[in-house]
């Protein structure tokens, strides 16, 4: 029975050799790990990337005056900075690859899932805690929720990933 494994029909919708990879970022260090991971690994020639950052206006951890008076502007520019910095890094690493960026708004999980569906992502790459990870209980809640509802594969990038580890 266990040996049925190999006789199973190949049923992937899309090829694994040209994947659409959605990288979800925010300003946290765990999210930095997601981009570090992308920058340390080999990718297929035809892989495409979409780097997104979600602006969740319910976010209460930025109590600057500008955030109170014009939240959309403040958060949007932060999100834009995050995705454009990431795009530049990725472009330097993978100059031939198709890279896009997008700033999303709304509740983080829904925004990521929705975007993954619309863009037909094959893989979502994200850091393990996201910016709500203040204590162990909520730690990683976004990653878990995304995993549960994702229409595609999900990679949770957990610890600092370095090229050094590759050599060991």
């Amino acid at each position: 029975m266990l040996l049925n494994l190999l006789s199973a029909p190949k049923t992937n919708l899309r090829s694994l050799t040209n994947m659409k990879i959605l990288i979800s970022l925010d300003s946290s260090s765990s999210s930095q790990r997601a981009i570090d991971f992308a920058l340390s690994r080999p990718w297929a020639e035809d892989d495409e990337f979409l780097i997104v950052s979600v602006v969740d206006v319910d976010r209460g951890d930025m109590s600057m005056a500008s955030a109170m008076t014009s939240p959309n502007k403040t958060f949007n520019s932060e999100a834009e900075r995050i995705v454009s910095e990431a795009k530049e890094l990725l472009h330097n690493y993978l100059p031939q690859h198709k890279l896009e960026t997008r700033c999303l708004s709304g509740p983080i999980k829904q925004a990521i899932i929705e975007c993954a569906k619309n863009w037909s992502a094959d893989l979502i790459l994200l850091g393990s805690q996201g910016r709500q990870g203040l204590n162990r209980l909520v730690l990683g809640s976004i990653a878990e929720e995304v995993l549960r509802d994702a229409p595609c594969s999900v990679q949770i990038v957990r610890r600092k990933f370095s090229r050094r580890e590759d050599q060991s």
Binding site: T11, F37, S153, V154, R159
Partner: peptide, 19 residues
């Protein structure tokens, strides 16, 4: 899968396929 994802000391890729 969910428990491993939560407790793993390292990165985890969860592969979903249509089937």
């Amino acid at each position: 899968t969910e428990d491993v994802m939560k407790s793993a000391p390292c990165s985890v890729t969860i592969v979903k396929s249509a089937h």
